[in-house]
């Protein structure tokens, strides 16, 4: 297994890659909200062009985005089919029991399809251009207001970043355990489902034991280095909000205005 990549980050140095992760996070949320303003072809066209432009700026090949849609394909088609066949109204040109087809329901189905695809594209853009660490930094920052209600934001952020960092180590550990079990005659990936599930148990238990050992060692190392909760700690890693970040958010504001205008046509 070796060096696995967490998430789907693709290294790069495009404008989108260099944006502050907070800007990307907020922008993604805004997009998911304003997509519900779209109600006609013009609005979807505006959204589509906007997303394609963003994809172009990221210099990431479009195939990665299409790949992002694939795992969701079944869910999307299912929802679209429901929408098409079960929307009443319009002038159905085909009807069978409660199933009906009309121009309106087909258009609605296409809109839903577009909505899904655009949301997947924009969230893929976020995960492809942002490292997991930057994400956890952004989440930490955006959750800061929750400190007021005594939510342990800093602890959660530290946990998140440690968890991310230990994934490669645990995956190595898993490989080691699997090899050790193979040497003892366990077959992985053979036999029926029950057999395969049974084969997982001798991996999981040593893996739990070894994660607890790592956690124990790490907690001692952290305490030895003076970790005493987040009170009074300073932060080394910093996020830098720059002009392009403000511009990105402004462009999302403009997009919202355009949608508001177009939707009333």
């Amino acid at each position: 297994m070796g060096k696995i990549i967490v998430g789907r980050y693709l290294p790069g140095n495009s404008l989108i890659h260099r944006l502050d992760p907070r800007a990307k996070f907020i922008a993604t949320f805004i997009f998911v909200a304003i997509i519900f303003l779209a109600n006609n072809w013009a609005t979807y066209l505006a959204l589509g062009l906007f997303v394609l432009w963003a994809v172009y700026l990221s210099k990431v090949s479009l195939t990665f985005f299409i790949k992002g849609v694939r795992p969701m394909l079944f869910l999307i088609l299912f929802t679209v089919a429901l929408q098409i066949f079960f929307t009443p109204g319009g002038n159905p040109f085909w009807q069978w029991g409660i199933l009906s087809l009309s121009k309106l329901s087909i258009i609605n189905g296409i809109f839903i399809l577009l909505r899904f695809t655009l949301i997947i594209f924009i969230s893929t853009l976020l995960t492809i251009t942002t490292t997991p660490l930057q994400m956890s930094d952004a989440i930490e920052y955006l959750l800061r207001p929750l400190r007021k209600i005594h939510f342990p934001v800093d602890e959660v952020a530290l946990m998140l970043s440690i968890a991310l960092q230990f994934i490669p180590l645990l995956s190595d550990e898993t490989t080691k355990i699997m090899n050790a079990q193979r040497a003892r005659g366990v077959d992985f990936g053979e036999g029926n489902i029950i057999k395969q599930i049974k084969a997982i148990v001798p991996i999981l238990i040593p893996l739990f034991v070894s994660s607890f050992n790592i956690a124990y060692d790490l907690s001692i190392a952290m305490e030895a280095r003076g970790y005493n909760g987040s009170a009074g700690r300073t932060k080394y890693r910093q996020l830098h909000w720059q002009k392009p970040d403000t511009l990105v958010l402004t462009s999302f504001g403009l997009l919202t205005i355009i949608l508001l205008i177009l939707r009333s046509y």
């Binding site: 790592i214 060692d217 952290m222 003076g226 300073t234 080394y236």
Partner: peptide
């Protein structure tokens, strides 16, 4: 492997300093 707290080398070296509340430029 069991004492690396930071996500990168510099983050890890800074961990003890963060705990002491050292200002960032000194860190």
């Amino acid at each position: 492997d069991h004492q690396f707290v930071g996500a990168t080398v510099e983050d890890d070296v800074a961990f003890g300093l963060e705990n002491l509340g050292i200002p960032r430029d000194q860190m």
